Amino acid sequence: MRFNDKGELRAINPENGFFGVAPGTNTKTNPNAMKSFQKNSIFTNVAETADGGFYWEGMEDESDQNIAITDWLGQPYKRGSGKKAAHPNARFTCPASQCPIIHPNWEDPEGVPISAIIFGGRRPTGVPLVFETLSWEHGVAVGACVKSEATAAAEFTGKVIMHDPMAMRPFMGYNFGKYLQHWLDMKQPWTKGQFFFFFTTMPKIFHVNWFRVGEHGEFLWPGFGDNVRVLDWILRRCAGDQSMLEKTPIGYIPKKGSLNLDKIDNLDWKELFSLPKPYWLDDMRESIRFLEDQVGCDVPQVVMDELNAQQKRIEQEL
């Protein structure tokens, strides 16, 4: 990412391809991924069919029921045995150029404008489907407090909630306090020529959570292809639509009716966007303690001010 000479944040993707977790991927959940890795692709820890094809959990309806399968450990696989054909963290990787819907200018050196930055974590309770942060500084603080339920891709076992700041914890290469300050410093006036100053145009920051569950453990949001409905709401917010917001102590959530829910039945809107006060007070205290313990005096004061202000809003407004 870089700012152009107009102060607009633009980005290019320096990578050559895509990778993803294989189990659960099929023509219903991700048809374009399936089309992308039909050739010139690499698969790790997946099962193999007798004709040299790939197989994993989620492809039960897309493969010949009579074909022999060898599991990821090299053993014969029997359907319905209860054993895993592929490792839960099995992967595919393929060239981006093979994606059927990739933008024709995806390699333009000028890049694309960045209007939104979206953080997300797997949070089974308490955290709404989507919210917009109140400012760039508030967004940086929210990013610093990202948490997620551990999955097969993490080094943890069991369903524990782990801290994953900026959804980047495994990739942090230097002092996290300095990393946060780098984010904050992006919002600075820039000089153009000798006499002209302008302020950078900062993206809006959002947080999403596709994984909230109800009292019986069921997902409250259908996920997969329906996530584009949330992206649609985000894009309309970036276009300046002010009529779709409800302000809460943690940020702006969608006003009821502003999210396209056409053909989604029995959605528990109230629960999906509820903000339980005891949960959020505990979460804020724990997040602040985490930063104090793990980052200490290197946490930018602006971030601590934002978190303390949010905690106060929760105490007074929820």
Rank of each mutant, 00 (worst) to 15 (best):
S148W: 04
F119R: 01
P104I: 11
G111A: 04
P95S: 09
C99D: 09
R122Y: 13
S115K: 14
V130E: 03
F92V: 14
E110G: 09
G82T: 05
R122M: 07
A141E: 02
G111Q: 04
G121K: 02
K147G: 00
L134K: 13
A144K: 01
W136M: 07
S115G: 12
D108L: 04
I101T: 15
A90M: 08
E107W: 08
T93F: 15
N89L: 07
T93W: 14
I118G: 00
V142H: 00
W136Y: 13
R91F: 14
S148G: 12
N89A: 15
D108W: 06
E132T: 10
A85K: 10
H87F: 11
V146N: 00
K147F: 03
E137W: 01
A86Y: 10
N105F: 12
K83L: 13
I118S: 00
T125M: 14
A141V: 06
K147Q: 15
G82I: 06
S135N: 03
E107Q: 15
R122N: 09
G126W: 11
R122Q: 11
E137I: 05
N105R: 13
A116M: 04
P128W: 08
V130L: 13
V142N: 00
S115Q: 14
N105C: 08
E110Q: 14
E132I: 07
A144T: 00
F119W: 06
P104E: 09
T125Q: 15
V140T: 01
P128Q: 07
T125R: 15
V142T: 06
I102R: 12
G143C: 02
F119N: 01
W136N: 05
G111P: 03
P100C: 07
V146K: 00
G82K: 07
G120I: 06
V140F: 03
W106Y: 15
G139C: 09
V127N: 02
P95F: 10
I114V: 15
V140Y: 04
E149A: 13
T93C: 12
S148H: 03
A144P: 01
